[in-house]
Nucleic acid binder design. Structure first.
Lengths: 215, 215, 215, 215
DNA sequence: TATGAATGAGTGTTCATTCAT
DNA sequence: CATGAATGAACACTCATTCAT
């Protein structure tokens, strides 16, 4: 057996070990998102991940550690430099553009991220309310970013007099609320969809948010 | 013991029975809202309601019947003539007023309802995702009302040319999203409150929704 | 149904409830004494007690509570006024008698107690070493009695010059050691029994203890 | 790499293997003595011995084999010619001395042995009761020695009329009980120690055993 | 030979549910 | 009608043991 193949084998092993752990967490997040944390059982997580039940506990000694694992993943998602940097880049690139162009650019940039990690995001936000420790963890680590980025979006445009003097936090929260409810509706009540694509919906949301519904 | 007093006793009994049933459901909703359906135990519901565990099952043979009970309560809340009528009244009274006056009037009218039944509403919306049967029940019975009422708010004003030609459903969903996220934030992150009273916040939300954030 | 029979029924119920709890503890102590605490399973305790496994946990929420239950029983045994009083009575009755008469009287008085509760005593003394909390509990509550009684046995006789000036504690511990090893041998190696009855053995032990083996 | 160094390596390996096996057993005995056989886990034994969990099973295919290993060690201890011979030597050397001199000599000779192997002795005697096979093994192999040695201590002195006609077995068991309870008390309740050194205690125990407590 | 990832039977424990009273 | 003792299936979790490397 050549040195090369040995190394490859080791790599495969390492990958397998990592992948077992990863697979377990993935399946857990998926089931948590469908049944909630207390509604999910370690038995079905094991089956879903194709491992013995005992194996779960090698990596996650307590069931709740799966939730912490999900949280770490979520925090990574919200703080990972590549993600945040991409967002900052979008903001930078569009810093002279009108606010609607910027918001649309941000949303289009975020949509994939959001869609790809919808179960994870759902789990975190759903379980946060039941687990004070999770809540604090997330708010401390993840929400910081949001609080830094939001002012950047509004500041320059306010100075230019382009925007009304509306509280940044309330404005952003409102926009987020519009987006989130759109996502929830599209996920759980797809029959009600008013538009085929999310991009079209975002156009409308940005329009409402920026110019209101009044003629 | 006289016949009279016996009758009285029976009446008292009946009232007590109804109250026992009511109390159990109230406590159940409260605990469901704090721990989720699967996270709540019949044991703590019994303790909270001051009854024996077995008593719960006289009224709600399965734990899930408590959720159905909550659902019936929620549907009542959303369809009860008195509630709907009041809303229709508000809309009627303000039918000539500008849209922002109407929305504010509606919201002020709804706030108490919403606040008083926050746990119930939370339970229904959270658990809906895990229980397909609940979801269908609610959408069929309760959302009908919304679908009837919403056009009434927009129709006349659209004809007058007061409003842009924006999809009613998307507009209303957006406004709801703004409201809901405000409520959630005020419930779970009261430290972040931008305003002391909800009324003040609603002013801002209506302003954003109607006139947008742009000068 | 007469009032009398009602009362009787309630009494039966109460007795049954108490007996379920009592039975579980009894069986638990028995199995602990045969397999040790960690070696015993709640499953076999349940089977032995003729109840469902879940029933155990109504009375003893944690397995270890069965051990605490045993400990409470043991402490009762060592401190229960009737027991201690009986012992004091024996000492009082024989206070003028020679030391060997007194010791023999005490031992004969204790034998039944010891034999009847041998599994309990065995469990407590064996498990004490593994559970610091049990150890402290027992030493604080139960050994106090021994420390009060022992001097009463020796004091008067020392004053009379009947006894050598030997440390009371060491003397008593030695006598106890002789007794205990006799019991252990008789329990675990009955084939080696030198005498048919314990009474005969005690005669010899008291003889050795009081007069030594030397002519 | 030269042949020489290879051989050396193998030797080193062999020594290491033996040491690995030895280390595992040592750690196992230590943990068994602290938590009991069922209370100990192979995981903590592996950690304590600094080996992988799988390694244990190369040497001891079943967990219980560790107990058999301990038993073999104990039997060796009680029968090893050097040990027994030393004891016989002590008895021989003091065969004309008064019984108290002999007993003291024996005890002083045995103390170190006892103290050095306290965990092993504890494990064997504790677990014997739970494992019939262990019990038989020990009694057959190890107790034989005791049964041969004891008569040697008493025979000559009985013939001389130095000793009362007390059953040898009961006498020896009594003395052992005194000794054992002293050890247990000193181990588990060191606060109660009546004397600083074991030697001082042994003087008293021998005095009580030989001459009794009576003046 | 030594490793440690993986296993799965088994353990303590929970909890909705039943039922005699 | 209300109780609460009892149930037992299901749960999270443990641990001795196996085996590919």
């Amino acid at each position: 057996m050549s040195e090369y193949s040995l190394i490859k084998k080791e790599e495969v092993m390492k990958r397998n070990i990592k992948e077992t752990e990863k697979k377990i967490l993935e399946v857990a997040i998926d089931i948590f998102s469908k049944k909630g944390f207390t509604g999910a059982t370690t038995n079905e997580i094991a089956k879903g991940a194709g491992v013995a039940e005992g194996t779960i506990f090698k990596y996650y000694p307590k069931k709740k550690d799966l939730l912490y694992g999900a949280m770490i993943k979520a925090i990574d998602l919200f703080t990972e430099s590549i993600v945040v940097d991409t967002l900052k880049e979008v903001i930078e690139e569009n810093k002279e553009a009108p606010i609607e162009i910027l918001l649309k650019a941000i949303m289009i940039d975020r949509i994939k991220l959001f869609e790809n990690h919808f179960p994870l995001i759902k789990v975190i936000f759903y379980e946060m309310q039941f687990h004070e420790d999770l809540k604090e963890l997330f708010l401390n680590k993840a929400s910081k970013n949001l609080q830094e980025i939001v002012p950047k979006i509004f500041k320059k445009r306010k100075e230019k007099g382009e925007l009304k003097n509306i509280n940044d936090f309330v404005a952003m929260r409102s926009f987020l609320g519009m987006i989130i409810l759109m996502f929830l509706q599209r996920s759980f009540l797809p029959k009600e969809n008013a538009f085929e694509t999310i991009e079209q919906e975002i156009d409308v949301l940005v329009e409402i948010f920026v110019n209101g519904i009044k003629e």
